[in-house]
């Protein structure tokens, strides 16, 4: 077999004059691609409370609960109460979320969406429990 020693040396010397390959992340902004999946956002107005997201969440991180202050039923012109849309809130446990965004995909009303907001580390555990409400 052919042997060529020290083949790595010219390469190693060349690298001395190149910029470091490591990204300087905490000091510089991290480069993210458009499809990066980070914190899941929730829009109260769009949610219809079908709870499909709860059903598919692999880590049981998401919880859809009825909102505390529901709109009062209005009396229609015919004297009967008009149907009123129930409001739902969302509790997102960021310590459980694995950022797969399956909930975003399954949501029929697009009430959930992923954001590019990825710096989510917290010192207090209760801050990881996000409560999206109206």
């Amino acid at each position: 077999m052919k042997r060529k020693p020290m083949r790595i040396l010219p390469e190693a010397l060349k690298q001395l004059f190149k910029k470091p390959a490591t990204s300087k992340y905490p000091f510089e902004k991290a480069k993210l691609y458009a499809g990066y999946r980070a914190r899941i956002n929730f829009e109260v107005e769009k949610c219809i409370g079908c709870k499909m997201c709860m059903r598919v969440c692999p880590s049981k991180a998401i919880e859809i609960i009825p909102a505390e202050n529901q709109p009062q039923p209005q009396i229609g012109p015919d004297g009967k109460p008009m149907p009123v849309k129930k409001i739902f809130n969302c509790i997102m446990n960021l310590d459980r979320c694995i950022y797969c965004a399956q909930c975003v995909e399954i949501c029929p009303k697009k009430a959930l969406a992923y954001t590019q907001d990825f710096e989510l580390a917290q010192i207090e555990k209760k801050k990881l429990r996000l409560h999206y409400k109206n």
């Binding site: 077999m1 052919k2 042997r3 060529k4 020693p5 083949r7 790595i8």
Partner: peptide, 11 residues
């Protein structure tokens, strides 16, 4: 490929 097949250290 060259490095892995010809470098004496690897061999």
């Amino acid at each position: 490929v060259n490095l892995a097949t010809e470098e004496p250290t690897v061999l």
